Computed example of a mutant assay.
Amino acid sequence: MLNSSGIYSNSSQVSIIGSKTAEYVKLAVALLIIVCFCCFLYFMAVMLNVFFTTSNIRENSRYILFFHMLINDTLYIAFGVLLLLLAIYRVAIPGPICYVLYIIGSSTFRATAYNLATMALERYVAICHPLRHGELCTAQRAKVSIVLMWVVGLIPYATDLIIILASNNKLSSLNVVCTQETMVVNPVQIIIRSQSVIIGFTTVGLIIIFTYVRIILIAQKISSQSSFALKAGKTVLLHAFQLVLCMASLLSNVSEMYPNNYSAFLPLVNFLMYSCVPRFLSPLIYGLRDEVLRKYIRQTVLKSCRTVHVSKS
């Protein structure tokens, strides 16, 4: 079955191994994920400080979309770690809470792809229709597009919820081990989830390919803007690369079908490699490449270091 959230694995594959070595490895990987997430949160705090204290960045559609992606990825990792640990250690929670966590985690997974497509379209307008960029890519339109991302991302789960409620399932009154399979009460749900992910990611992929080709063609035709266009083309290519990394998380279940001796901690390793690493790279891929952001990030970090130094002395 296609893992539409990319967050946690099939609970039947998460076996409890009595070996102390396996438990130590599992704990070590979990701690590694948490430490990496804390470092990611620090960088996120620095970048959000830059965003909310710099008016020209806060009113720029490109940066609004970028910071939405960072916040979305933070939520994805946070809920992903929580759901994965609950599933691996088989902690039972109320069914409605499990479903809410599942919806948030899955929606943030989809929103990342939609955000990448929207950022690619913004670069396309900037290069191919520069005279209309100020009109089309306003801060208000960027915020509207963010709302639309979430509406589109939540539509499959509205249908999913209707099926669950119509099935007279007792899920709402039970404590369950929160996995994706727990939320399936009708085979139709699997079809809806799988098809919506396929359609969504295919659409995003086509948008990124289209924008990249158009930008490169413009770069070849207009020599005076070629350097700017080529840089935008590289940015869109990075969007495609990150989309591929996000799609890799959909294949994590495949790797868990065979090495059963490591099934206790393999979901944690898969989550770290396929789900966390692509999102940990986002600030580096987009934030530090941008000259404006890089300047403000450096200023914020130096300022915080001076503050810490003064407080200690």
Rank of each mutant, 00 (worst) to 15 (best):
E122N: 15
E122G: 03
E122H: 14
R123E: 13
Y124R: 13
Y124D: 13
V125G: 00
V125W: 11
V125Y: 10
A126C: 11
A126N: 11
A126I: 09
I127L: 07
H129D: 14
H129S: 15
P130I: 12
P130C: 12
L131W: 05
L131M: 11
L131N: 13
R132C: 08
G134E: 12
L136I: 15
L136W: 12
L136D: 09
C137P: 05
C137N: 12
A139D: 12
A139H: 08
Q140W: 11
Q140K: 14
R141Q: 11
V144N: 07
S145C: 12
S145P: 03
I146N: 01
V147F: 09
V147H: 00
V147E: 01
L148I: 15
V151G: 07
V152L: 13
G153T: 08
G153M: 03
G153W: 08
G153F: 08
G153C: 09
L154Y: 06
I155W: 03
I155G: 01
Y157C: 00
Y157A: 02
A158N: 00
A158Q: 01
D160G: 03
D160T: 03
L161V: 07
I162E: 00
I163Q: 05
I164A: 09
I164P: 02
I164E: 02
A166Q: 05
A166N: 09
A166R: 04
N168P: 03
N169A: 10
L171F: 13
S172P: 01
S172T: 07
